[in-house]
Amino acid sequence: MTEIENPAAEPAAVTRNYAGFWMRFWAYLVDLLIVAAVNGILLSPLTVFSDAGSAEIGYWTLAGILGSIVFYLYFLLMTKYFRQTLGKMIFGLEVIHEDGGNLRWKDLLFREVVGRFLHRVFGILVLLYLVVAFTPEKQGIHDMIGDTRVVHAK
């Protein structure tokens, strides 16, 4: 007796529509505008009502440090809890784990904090964002480090 195969029992292949460089670029610009607005609202009292915003801590100012914290927290928390930032929501993009599972804190810390920090602190590294345009799954270096992909939301 031969065994009959059931084609319906095979798992369906997951097709993902990866977000390209330009979609991600425009979403990032929207996010930068949002972070700048939030920083303006939160940090303007610090600089208007006192001189604390210009207080220097080494090479940095207090306002610069607080603004950076807001920047990184925005990307980290929005991506963790919503899988997308407001810019990605507007353009219909979301961040997923490479295996389709839940986004883990360690992956997001590397993607959103370490990756963005390196791109911002070392100016020439911002050119590495162009890697997104040339990889098959449209991954940036920060996506590779964080085991993530950016796809068009369904």
Rank of each mutant, 00 (worst) to 15 (best):
E137L: 02
T61L: 01
I96V: 15
G92I: 03
E98K: 08
L118A: 13
L109I: 14
E56C: 08
R111N: 00
K88M: 03
L66M: 05
L128R: 04
G53W: 13
G64V: 00
G40F: 08
F110R: 11
D31P: 11
L43E: 04
G100Q: 03
L73T: 13
D107P: 15
F134D: 04
H119R: 08
G123P: 02
E94A: 09
T79H: 03
S44K: 13
E112Q: 14
V38E: 06
F71S: 10
L42Q: 15
R120K: 15
R83M: 14
I65Q: 01
W60I: 10
L42H: 08
L32K: 14
S54I: 10
L109P: 09
L103W: 01
S50E: 02
F49D: 11
I34S: 04
Q84K: 09
F75G: 06
F49K: 06
K88A: 02
L43V: 07
S44Q: 02
L108A: 00
F71L: 09
E137C: 07
F134T: 13
V113W: 02
G67M: 01
L86P: 11
E112K: 14
G101W: 12
A37V: 05
A63N: 04
L43D: 05
I90L: 08
A55I: 10
T85Y: 09
L86M: 06
V38K: 12
F75R: 07
A52F: 05
L118N: 09
L76W: 13
M89Y: 14
N39E: 10
G87A: 01
L103H: 04
L62S: 12
A63Y: 01
I96S: 00
E56K: 06
R104D: 08
L62M: 06
L128H: 02
Y72W: 04
V70C: 02
V35W: 07
I96Y: 00
D107G: 11
I90Q: 15
S54P: 02
L125T: 08
L77K: 03
L93H: 14
R111Q: 00
V95F: 15
Q84M: 15
Y72C: 08
L32G: 13
F117Q: 00
I96K: 02
L76R: 06
K80F: 01
V113Y: 00
G40Q: 03
M78T: 15
D107K: 12
P136F: 07
L46W: 15
L125H: 13
V132C: 13
L42G: 06
L125E: 05
E94Y: 12
F82E: 14
E94H: 08
L33A: 07
E137A: 07
E112G: 09
M78P: 01
F110S: 13
L76K: 10
V121F: 11
V131M: 06
S44H: 05
E112M: 07
W60A: 06
S68I: 06
G53S: 04
F117C: 03
G58R: 01
G58A: 05
L118R: 09
I96P: 03
A63I: 01
L109A: 13
L128I: 05
S50N: 04
